[in-house]
Every structure is written in structure tokens, then in C-alpha cells.
């Protein structure tokens, strides 16, 4: 039997990898993938806690988070395409018109 802490540590590690990725990567698509990674890391926590408490709330929550992630993908990729049409690039560093 795998202890619950193992799942939580896995979830935390994945979440951190995602968060660090968002902060260091410059390509909008990679940043977006890192955000999806963070959401899915949270899903692992939800499922683990659901098992711990023996109720289904957490697993239901996972479905909603998956729907949100899918909607986010639809909106996000559309935004990245609009970006690319305007500037022929998806590097976030090439967008610096708006500052200070």
C-alpha cells in the first residue's frame, strides 16, 4: 500500500516544476503547458485526499478541473495564434510594448 504522503509529495513536486517552468520559460506555449502541469498536479492531490477521507468530493472536483483545463486550452491556444498572427513569434520576450 502506497502511503498518502507519497501522492502528496508527487503532487507538490509536479506543481513546483510547473510553477518554476512558468517563471523561467519564455515561450508562450511552454508556459501554457507548465500551467496545465500545475492544474494536473492539483488533481493528484484531490484524488489522494479523496481516498484519505473516503468521500467522492475530491474526485468530482477533478472532473471540473479537467473541464476548466480543457476550456483554458481552447482559449489559450486561440490567444497564442492571435499573438503569432500579429508578431510572427510566440516568445513572450518579444512582446514588450506595454510596460511601466
Amino acid at each position: 500500500m502506497v502511503p498518502i504522503s507519497a501522492y502528496l509529495i508527487l503532487s507538490f513536486v509536479l506543481f513546483s516544476i510547473g510553477a518554476i517552468g512558468v517563471l523561467v520559460r519564455k515561450n508562450a506555449i511552454v508556459v501554457f503547458m507548465c500551467i496545465e502541469l500545475m492544474l494536473n498536479a492539483v488533481n493528484i492531490s484531490f484524488v489522494a485526499f479523496s481516498q484519505l477521507h473516503g468521500n467522492l468530493d475530491g474526485q468530482i472536483a477533478v472532473f471540473f478541473v479537467m473541464v476548466v483545463a480543457a476550456a483554458e486550452a481552447a482559449v489559450g491556444l486561440a490567444i497564442i495564434i492571435a499573438m503569432f498572427r500579429n508578431a510572427e513569434t510566440t516568445e513572450t520576450t518579444d512582446f514588450g510594448e506595454l510596460k511601466f
Binding site: F32, M38, A48
Partner: peptide, 27 residues
Amino acid sequence: SESSMKYFLLGSFSSAFLLYGIALLYG
């Protein structure tokens, strides 16, 4: 499109943190 991209990336970044908070409270 720059404003849209910034809002999207930072907004979903912050909702991921919010969601992690929710998961911990559930736990």
C-alpha cells in the same frame, strides 16, 4: 494580443495557486 496573453498566462497561473489552496483545504 499582448494584453490578452499576459492576462491569460498570469491569470491561469494564479488560479492554479488558488486551486492548490482549495485542494489543501479539502485535504
